[in-house]
Write a protein that binds this DNA or RNA. Structure first.
Length: 914
RNA sequence: GGGGAAUUAGCUCAGCCCGGGAGAGCGCUACAUUCGCAUUGUAGAGGUCAGGGGUUCGAAUCCCCUAUUCUCCA
């Protein structure tokens, strides 16, 4: 057996099949380019789907690839086993109606034995039960002993698994797998009664799929006219075999990452002897980090950005798990971006896209890691105190168990709720909560957690339901039943025109006529055969305007479309409009043009943002109305004020150079080739509408636009805000709205300048100096009050009466407010060991009350709160507080003498009480 | 689109449940210790408790609105 590195195995394979007439083809992106049904590319054959179906147009019938693959369902197992990965490489050779089993089997097998030098005695193969053809080839052409050929059922040896009995319909076929035997000295197992080969002795290193049938209903297998070969081999496993390692993670494909992290742990934690292979727990972490950093780097290289949904969410989750593992190893500073550099070193030669986006990878990883560390330590702290409280309250206390015994760990009440709260509020991953609980010997209440999640989903669903839309659905259905033609849109060329009324709606019902002043549940809707009204789409709001018929007219408030029908929401203003009327439709030109300004400006803004912030900026949504435009884009960090100013400048420069705008319809493929950007493949049909602003911006767009950028006038950015992590929103205005904004700013400034009596340029300085003057004045006032309070203190001391040890006082302090009284009471209390008293401060038609009592006197029945309540009652107010200290307020200063005598009465009761 | 959370000194945060004199640590300034520095000690400066409204005699604290930031669900 040769000793080969992972890279050498990959190269050996690809050139082996190149020599056998295969075209070496680049790996497909991890993000399937033409298949929106898939989250990620998970197998080598995905990019050749069309070829297998006979619909492809690649100029070859044999291909070999090393395909990047990502499998999310395996995420939980990564690190716990020798062979689970999220990201892995799949070597593959494919035949599209070219060669079949008789060539495929020996080529693959002899690659193992000849190119890699794996002895035949270390290999066994499996075939589908009755695939005698395959058996014959293994026996005769390869010369494998029949006890090395195992026959398994459709679950193990059919693709898709169990296809004949369970489906799905479509191309399928038997497969034949090749296994490596780690214990060749032991006797081979008996084939009879065996359902699969025992692990871990046997490891699957190759799977040849023979796509030869088309499954029909009822499990009927029709032979395909074109038979295909789809072979997949896991590079990591084969490398493990050649490296002589039982775990994929111990091969040269992974050691660089493990070494990098181990060294870092040694440096950062001072654990000089730290290394892989010491403790299971740390090994799992090292393996997980190694796997995840590969997945994350490749995902970013393929254009995935961390976000809160879909692919971006998977990326985020993977990065966060890796980050946490590092944290637990003692790496408290971000380190993953450094590790991402290692990925590029190790894999960059085979996958040049890594080298191209190395900066982007490092930046995003770094950013994501930093933001997560903040969240993580916060969440961990919260959970930690929660767990500690569990034990100390004594209400629930469980014995600590070993992590290995997952069996029946105690489930603390409320663990599901706290995990959900942490997850929902701080984005603290629930699996991390689970692991932290596990570390302390508890289990997470997963049912409650899931219930909380479900409740959250329900809330979101209910909240997002739009009220009026149900009607349109039913209405559309009726129009379709009548087979009415779809509305023809003329609004690209014109803003007015004639149309025939096809249908009218009044709330729930379809009606013959809509009249001014009629009672109806509304909203009224009108559908015509032709219309210049733009219907809301692509973020651009629908047009407003007017519709005039022979018997009346109506205002058009908004226009939307569904299944090709344009629905004008109308409000009759005169007479009535009936079905089959021929009507004049007139769009409100002013608001249409204002909208167009904003729409074209949005395209400019998009491009300018890319220019200033980087190519990673992608549109995440937009809203274009006559008043303003909103543009959501992907970007992690807040753009600086300078960046935004530059964006504004760039857009305005394009506006000033008055570039013409061209809208063209062309086939989708042509648009792609010409470099137009947009959401290909989803909403768009075969022909697409392209929009180019000079040479500057090229996008797919169905909206309406000005004819030249000069018509926009100017663009002013109003705000830039964060919508969600990784997504920001810019709001801006153009044209007359921008002018109006400038005017408002000016009038505000004028007002300030007039009022502060300072020229505009000095307003800032003026404000600062005024603020500091104000502060000084306030401080002086306070000091003055304290001085006055000090002066009155002496007078107060003279009024203090004695009742044994206790000193008591009830007095009024003219002009004193709450604060001064507090200060005075405090001093009085400090001066006398045992003191109770109340002070009334008169000022501004109000009376402030503060009472204090030292602890010993509280014990003797004097409560500050009672004093205040009694006096404030007399004074027409209220108050309260603690026994030692209380305050309140009264409204009638003339009652002060009465309040004081009541207070004395209460205070003097001390003497009688003792 | 629908929820949740956070916003308190230059920084990191406590205080909020249960309303009653705005706190801690770090940093800053001064002084002392020292030949000097590190250090240590002492003292001090620094806050419209995000903003607005409400409840209350009294709000950082309870309620409502707004803004900003984070986060989950769709």
């Amino acid at each position: 057996m040769k000793k080969l590195s992972g890279g050498e195995v990959r190269e050996s394979y690809l050139s082996w099949f190149e020599e056998r007439g295969h075209t070496r083809y680049a790996s497909d992106s991890l993000v399937p380019s033409n298949d929106p049904t898939l989250l990620f590319t998970g197998a080598g054959m995905n990019q050749f789907k069309d070829m297998f179906m006979g619909k492809g147009n690649l100029p070859f019938s044999r291909a070999t690839t090393s395909q990047k693959c990502l499998r999310v369902p395996d995420l939980e197992n990564v690190g716990l086993t020798a062979g689970h990965h999220t990201f892995f490489e799949m070597l593959g050779n494919f035949s599209f109606g070219d060669y079949f089993k008789e060539d495929c089997i020996p080529w693959v097998f002899f690659w193992f034995t000849e190119a890699l030098g794996i002895p035949q005695e270390r290999l066994v193969v499996t075939i589908f039960t009755d695939d005698e053809e395959a058996f014959g080839i293994w026996r005769e052409k390869v010369g494998l002993a029949s006890e090395r050929i195992f026959r398994f059922g459709e679950k193990e040896n059919y693709w898709p698994s169990s296809a004949p009995s369970k489906g799905p319909n479509g191309p399928c076929g038997p497969c034949s797998e090749i296994y490596f035997d780690w214990n060749p000295e032991e006797p081979l197992p008996e084939g009879k009664g065996l359902e699969s080969l025992p692990e871990p002795r046997f490891v699957e290193i190759g799977n040849c799929v023979f796509t030869q049938f088309d499954r029909r209903d009822g499990g009927v297998l029709e032979p395909l006219p074109q038979k295909n070969i789809d072979v997949g081999l896991g590079l990591e496993r084969i490398t493990a075999v050649l490296n002589g390692k039982r775990s994929n993670f111990e091969t040269d494909l992974f050691t660089s990452y493990i070494d990098f992290v181990s060294t870092l742990v040694q440096e950062k934690t001072g654990r000089r002897d730290f290394a892989y292979g010491q403790t299971t727990r740390d090994d799992i972490r090292l393996r997980r980090i190694s796997d995840h950093i590969r997945a994350a780097s490749f995902l970013i290289a393929d254009g995935v950005l961390p976000s809160n949904e879909g692919r971006g969410y998977v990326l985020r989750k993977i990065l966060r798990r890796a980050c946490r593992d590092g944290y637990e190893l003692g790496l408290t500073d971000p380190f993953l971006h450094g590790l991402a550099g290692v990925v590029v070193e190790v894999m960059g030669a085979a996958y040049p896209e890594l080298q191209r986006s190395i900066t982007q990878i490092k930046n995003l990883v770094h950013q994501e890691e930093r933001s997560f560390r903040g969240i993580y330590s916060q969440g961990a702290e919260k959970l930690r105190t929660w767990i500690q409280d569990l034990d100390t309250t004594g209400r629930s206390s469980w014995p600590l168990r070993e992590v290995e015994e997952r069996g029946d760990l105690p489930v603390p009440p409320g663990s599901g709720e706290i995990a959900f709260e942490l997850h929902d509020t701080f984005g603290f991953p629930v699996d991390v909560s689970g692991v932290m609980l596990l570390d302390e010997g508890y289990a997470l209440d997963e049912d409650t957690f899931k219930k909380s999640m479900e409740a959250q989903r329900k809330r979101a669903r209910e909240g997002s339901e739009i009220v009026g839309e149900l009607f349109v659905e039913g209405f559309v259905h009726k129009l379709k039943e009548k087979e009415l033609p779809a509305t023809q849109f003329t609004g690209y060329e014109t803003c007015s025109g004639q149309g025939r009324v096809l249908a009218l709606g009044d709330g729930e019902e379809e009606v013959e006529r809509i009249s001014q002043g009629q009672d109806g549940s509304g909203p009224y809707r009108l559908v015509t055969d032709t219309t210049p009204f733009y219907a809301e789409a692509g973020g651009q709001v629908g047009d407003r305007g007017e519709v005039r018929g022979p018997q009346g007219r109506a205002r058009v408030l908004e226009c939307s479309k569904q299944d090709g029908y344009y629905f004008h929401r109308i409000e009759p203003i005169e007479g009535s409009i009936a079905r089959d009327d021929t009507v004049e439709l007139e769009v409100d030109v002013e608001s249409r043009v204002a909208t167009e300004r904003n729409h074209t400006a949005t395209h400019l803004l998009h491009q300018a943002l890319k220019e200033v912030l980087g190519p990673q900026v992608a549109q995440a949504g937009s809203m274009v109305s006559p008043d303003r435009l909103r543009f959501d884009y992907t970007q992690g960090e807040r753009p600086s004020a300078e960046d935004l100013a530059r964006v504004e400048d760039i857009v305005n420069r394009e506006i000033l150079s008055s570039v013409p705008i061209n809208a063209l319809e062309m086939p989708l493929e042509e648009a792609q080739k010409a470099g137009f950007t947009g959401l290909f493949g989803e909403k768009y049909g075969r022909t697409v509408r392209t929009l180019s602003v000079g040479q500057y911006s090229r996008e797919l767009c169905g909206g309406t636009h000005v004819r030249s950028t000069g018509q926009i006038g100017q663009l002013r950015i109003l705000s830039d805000a964060s919508l969600a992590s990784g997504i920001r929103r810019i709001e801006a205005v153009t044209g007359l709205a921008a002018l109006e904004l400038g005017r408002q700013d000016r009038s505000t400034l004028d007002l300030l300048a007039r009022d502060l009596k300072a020229p505009r340029e000095e307003l800032g300085d003026r404000l600062i100096s005024l603020k500091s003057q104000l502060k000084q004045a306030q401080k002086a006032l306070e000091q003055q009050r304290m001085v006055e309070a000090g002066a009155s203190l002496e007078g107060l001391l003279e009024s203090v009466k004695e009742r044994g040890e206790a000193k008591i006082l009830a007095a009024s302090v003219p002009g004193a407010g709450n604060k001064e009284l507090l200060e005075l009471s405090d001093r009085l209390r400090k001066k006398h060991k045992s003191f109770a008293g109340i002070l009334l401060g008169e000022g501004q038609g109000q009376v402030a009350l503060v009472a204090v009592a030292t602890k010993d006197l509280v014990g003797r029945g004097i409560r500050a709160g009672d004093l205040v309540k009694a006096c404030a009652g007399i004074l027409g107010g209220g108050g309260g507080g603690r026994p030692e200290m209380a305050q309140g307020k009264g409204k009638d200063p003339s009652k002060i003498p009465a309040a004081l005598s009541k207070a004395w009465e209460m205070l003097e009761s001390i003497g009688t009480a003792s």
